[in-house]
């Protein structure tokens, strides 16, 4: 397992490593300031002290010792997300516009391999914006999805998103329990995992 994103209780990170975290916060907050003020140089009189103060408070509240995400994996995730947002929008549009309105909705419940609550929440929020899926409950590692079409291979996508999220955070996925943890309610059909 990789070193966790935010430092947990235990050995406190050394000073130079905390300075790296402070620098990361400064860069991020500084960039946000520049964007929000439209790059107005006269605003830096306030921007520099505020950025430094915000970075200081953030380093104190949640100290980091490295970049908490992997940039390349994030870009891969964004590419996947953008592509599928378009697919999802077109999919729902076609269903809404056809006079017959082809919907075979149902609830799909499945276990997640992501180990932390944060990453699971990220997955739940992501799937709601992707084709045909909407998270409607998350309890520990079990997610309940409302799907527009129970014939679609929803689980394949869930596994793919799990891999993408784990890559961003640089964490390992948990093993799935041996017992088939997938059950489906409300609708019969074929689920290919």
């Amino acid at each position: 397992m990789n070193s966790s994103v935010t430092s947990v209780s235990g050995a406190a990170p050394s000073r130079p490593r905390l300075a790296i975290g402070f620098a990361i916060y400064c860069v991020v907050f500084g960039a946000i300031w520049v964007v929000l003020t439209n790059g107005d140089t006269s605003s830096w009189m306030f921007g520099i002290p505020f950025t430094a103060f915000a970075a200081l408070v953030s380093s104190a509240m949640s100290p980091i010792t490295r970049l908490p995400i992997r940039p390349l994996a994030l870009i891969r995730f964004l590419a996947y997300f953008l592509r599928n947002s378009v697919v999802g929008g077109v999919d729902v549009a076609l269903r809404a516009l056809q006079p017959s309105m082809p919907l075979t909705p149902g609830i799909v419940v499945c276990s997640l391999r992501l180990p932390t609550p944060t990453t699971r929440a990220l997955l739940a929020y992501t799937v709601s914006l992707l084709p045909g899926t909407l998270s409607s409950g998350l309890e520990d590692e079990v997610i309940a999805l409302h799907v527009l079409d129970t014939e679609q291979p929803v689980l394949v996508e869930i596994r793919r998103i799990e891999n993408l999220i784990a890559d961003i955070m640089g964490i390992e996925l948990l093993e799935l329990p041996a017992v088939p943890s997938v059950e489906k309610t409300s609708q019969d059909g074929d689920l290919n995992a």
Binding site: S85, V86, G88, G89, D91, V92, A93, R95, A96, M101, L103, P105, S128, L129, P131, G132, L134, S136, H146, L148
Partner: peptide
Amino acid sequence: GLLRFPDVYSRLHALTKADNL
């Protein structure tokens, strides 16, 4: 979709996907 879809869940699908895109 918001007007035609049969329940609140499907309507959420319509709103989240179509409007965000």
